Measured scan of single mutants.
Amino acid sequence: MASQGTKRSYEQMETDGERQNATEIRASVGKMIGGIGRFYIQMCTELKLSDYEGRLIQNSLTIERMVLSAFDERRNKYLEEHPSAGKDPKKTGGPIYRRVNGKWMRELILYDKEEIRRIWRQANNGDDATAGLTHMMIWHSNLNDATYQRTRALVRTGMDPRMCSLMQGSTLPRRSGAAGAAVKGVGTMVMELVRMIKRGINDRNFWRGENGRKTRIAYERMCNILKGKFQTAAQKAMMDQVRESRNPGNAEFEDLTFLARSALILRGSVAHKSCLPACVYGPAVASGYDFEREGYSLVGIDPFRLLQNSQVYSLIRPNENPAHKSQLVWMACHSAAFEDLRVLSFIKGTKVLPRGKLSTRGVQIASNENMETMESSTLELRSRYWAIRTRSGGNTNQQRASAGQISIQPTFSVQRNLPFDRTTIMAAFNGNTEGRTSDMRTEIIRMMESARPEDVSFQGRGVFELSDEKAASPIVPSFDMSNEGSYFFGDNAEEYDN
């Protein structure tokens, strides 16, 4: 783990906690998980779902989305002020799938948001429990990260689609708070800032007046979040320049895209947490497990152990491969979309394939898809080993990566060399080191050039047997250095459309 220093740990961010010791953190995270579980059980009762239907990941996603929508204050306010045809701002819903006479049927349900809020609060001892809501947002974000390569979004903001390893959390809503900021990748933060800068260039009043003052505060806050992700002084200094700019424009845009590229080699610290679907927490609570009393951590053995003992089902389209669908969801559960496939294969105990080789589309089923041909199958979400999630980018030494994705962002704290394609990355730096950030740029390029592919990161860190909950005997895996390590390699994943 990167030293926490003055930073709060993510469990504290996750639970809005002030400084807590490890036991208190485990208890408050457990409380959050228990609340999600209780809410899910109650919703299944309301909807009269069978046990099997309640364990269907598509039903879980609909129920999670309903509660997130019920608590989305800004959108609710907007919907009330701008009524649109056929949208009731006070209601929320989605597809629920039921097994009827041996076939899967889709039923569109509609609930009062007020009623959903009441059920959620009741499951969370009367609190709004925003930490639990954020947790579900991060699960949705991790699922998107594993399912889609955001080529269009990258290109629109002047970045290269091969930089997708920097895009963790790119679909997280803005209201996801400190826990959300911690899991956002460098590219995601750059993209958010670039969008602001572009608006400022096109709209003279963007930075002016009372609204402009708020915009400015948001801009500086985002700059500080991004600065905190960088691990070298030169990158941090460049972020200070971007933040202090009187009138952010093209120079800042250039600096930010430069920094994003540099992060492929001088990786930023991005938190990883295993956020599971509500249909995993519900049955665990129903079986009598007391998360608050037992304590829970999002970055240790607990999620692995929970998945070892969970039964989750998914709808499967006619030509999809259930094992591939399982891999997709497994990666999402562990926030591992940008991790090295060699490491993932070792931990999972079966070969993890790149996205383009998977015969599976996303987990969600569109409303126009034919239910007649839908089957369902068990998702295999178990693992051979477990490993500690990392909050750091690993040290800054790398190795060759593949054509589709030119770097990785480690999820697990496991000893290995970190793949990246130096030639491709360095070719993108057209040696432009003039301007006010020239000395920093020169320094950053120097550090990137001296990074050695064969150097090892996370020295001495290994994986653990599932029986080793105290992480007492690390097993340090050895990897084939020459092997392909990137998930979005030469990829044809669908595009994420909101």
Rank of each mutant, 00 (worst) to 15 (best):
T378H: 02
V285Q: 07
A332H: 00
E380S: 09
R216M: 12
V186A: 08
K351N: 12
I197G: 15
P318A: 08
L381R: 03
S482L: 04
Q399T: 15
H135E: 01
S482C: 13
W120A: 02
K77P: 00
Q327C: 14
S326M: 06
L264S: 03
A428N: 03
V352S: 05
I475Y: 12
V155R: 00
F230L: 14
Y40V: 00
A131W: 09
S274I: 00
P322Q: 11
D468H: 13
E80W: 00
F39N: 01
N21R: 07
D290R: 07
R99H: 05
T188R: 06
R355Q: 06
T373R: 15
A428H: 13
I316A: 14
D72L: 00
N498G: 12
G177E: 12
N224D: 13
M66C: 14
T360I: 13
C44Q: 11
L79S: 07
T433H: 07
L298R: 09
Q20Y: 10
K227D: 07
T147W: 07
N395E: 01
W386R: 10
S473V: 15
S478I: 09
R204K: 08
A278T: 11
Q398H: 11
V312Q: 00
A153M: 12
L358I: 13
S407Q: 02
F338V: 03
H324P: 09
Y219I: 07
A284H: 11
V312I: 04
T62P: 00
C44I: 14
N144I: 11
N250K: 07
I265C: 13
T350C: 13
G393N: 13
D88L: 04
G249Y: 07
G177W: 07
R416E: 02
Q241N: 05
S274D: 14
A260D: 01
G349Y: 03
G435S: 10
S367P: 10
V476W: 14
N125V: 15
G362L: 03
K229Q: 14
M239S: 05
K91R: 15
D290F: 10
W104T: 01
N483R: 04
G30H: 04
Y40D: 06
Q399P: 13
G169N: 13
L307W: 05
L379Q: 07
M426D: 06
L264V: 02
M426V: 08
E107A: 10
T232E: 10
F488W: 10
E107V: 12
T171S: 15
G435I: 10
K348Y: 14
D340M: 06
R162F: 01
E454T: 09
R121W: 10
G404K: 00
F230R: 02
V363F: 09
S176P: 06
E252K: 13
L193H: 05
I138C: 10
A451N: 03
V476G: 09
I33N: 10
I25L: 06
N76P: 00
P453Y: 06
M371A: 01
G54D: 04
M66G: 03
S165A: 07
M374P: 04
T215P: 06
H334I: 09
P161E: 00
A179S: 12
R38W: 13
K31E: 09
R152C: 04
V329E: 06
E210C: 05
S402T: 13
A153I: 04
S176N: 04
E24P: 01
D72H: 14
A22E: 03
Y111Q: 09
Y40P: 04
G132V: 09
R342K: 15
H82R: 10
Y296T: 04
D160G: 10
T15S: 04
P89K: 03
S402K: 03
F479G: 00
S170P: 05
E210P: 04
H140T: 06
S383T: 14
W104K: 02
K236T: 09
S314V: 13
L381F: 02
P322T: 10
R19W: 06
A366C: 04
M137V: 09
M137K: 10
P477Q: 05
F488N: 04
M222V: 12
P173S: 15
M371P: 15
D255F: 11
E14M: 06
S367M: 06
Q327Y: 02
T433R: 10
S407Y: 02
S377P: 08
G300F: 03
K348G: 07
R195H: 02
I445D: 01
I119E: 04
T396M: 06
I365V: 15
N144Q: 14
G228Y: 01
V186I: 15
G158D: 13
M447P: 00
R317D: 01
F258Y: 11
S486T: 11
Q122Y: 02
A263S: 10
S473C: 14
Q235F: 03
P248N: 02
R342L: 02
N250C: 00
R452S: 07
S326D: 04
K7E: 10
A237D: 05
K113C: 09
Q398S: 09
D203L: 05
N319T: 06
S478E: 01
K90A: 02
